[in-house]
Amino acid sequence: MPLSEHEQRMLEQMERALYAEDPKFASALEGGGLRTFTRRRVYLAIAGFLIGIGLLMAGMVAKQTWVSVVGFLVMLACAVLAVTGWRRATRPGEHPPAPAGRRIGRRQPRRGKVMDRIEERWQRRRDEQGQ
């Protein structure tokens, strides 16, 4: 159910009041902390991938197959974590890649405000349920 004009005005007023009262908290709500956490997770996954390569090579040199298998599994898991984490770590104002099946001609408002993003997600969910 879309918001009425009155409800939209109230939400915009609450957003402005939040920015005026505590701009640091409001900017934290925009996802900067999550992006930092995700970026850190990607870097740890890359380090784990390198450790997996080391285990794989050590298993081959020592002729211990199980060590090589463990190294390969560590590499695989870290590669998956790095790729999925990197896709989530978009900067504010950037558009994440459009999922397949999305309509191309659709307007996508991205003004960087919390309430605009919430409203966009709400509309996307409604559109997906209606299909």
Rank of each mutant, 00 (worst) to 15 (best):
M1I: 04
M1H: 12
P2S: 10
L11G: 06
L11D: 05
E12P: 00
L18A: 11
L18Y: 01
Y19V: 07
D22I: 00
D22A: 12
P23V: 02
S27Y: 04
L29N: 05
L29E: 05
E30H: 10
E30G: 08
G31E: 02
G32R: 13
G33R: 03
R35S: 05
T36R: 08
R39A: 08
R40C: 09
V42R: 03
I46E: 04
I46F: 13
I46G: 05
L50V: 07
I53M: 06
G54F: 06
L56E: 02
L56G: 03
L56S: 04
M57P: 02
M57S: 12
M57Y: 12
M57G: 06
G59T: 07
G59K: 08
M60S: 15
V61Y: 13
V61P: 04
K63F: 14
W66F: 14
W66C: 08
W66T: 13
W66Y: 14
V67D: 02
S68K: 04
V69D: 12
V69N: 11
L73N: 15
V74T: 10
L76G: 07
A77T: 04
A77K: 06
C78R: 01
C78I: 00
V80Q: 09
A82Y: 02
V83W: 12
T84Q: 12
G85N: 05
G85F: 00
G85H: 02
R88H: 11
R88M: 11
A89G: 09
A89S: 15
T90M: 10
R91N: 09
P92E: 06
G93I: 00
G93W: 00
G93R: 01
G93Y: 00
E94V: 00
H95P: 03
H95L: 14
P96C: 04
P96G: 07
A98L: 13
R102A: 14
G105M: 04
G105H: 03
G105P: 01
R107Y: 09
Q108I: 01
R110A: 11
G112V: 03
K113D: 13
K113C: 03
K113Y: 11
K113N: 09
V114Q: 08
M115S: 10
M115K: 02
D116M: 03
I118C: 10
E120W: 07
W122L: 15
Q123R: 10
R124N: 12
R125H: 14
R126Y: 07
R126S: 11
R126W: 08
R126C: 10
D127G: 05
D127S: 11
Q131A: 09
Q131K: 09
Q131D: 07
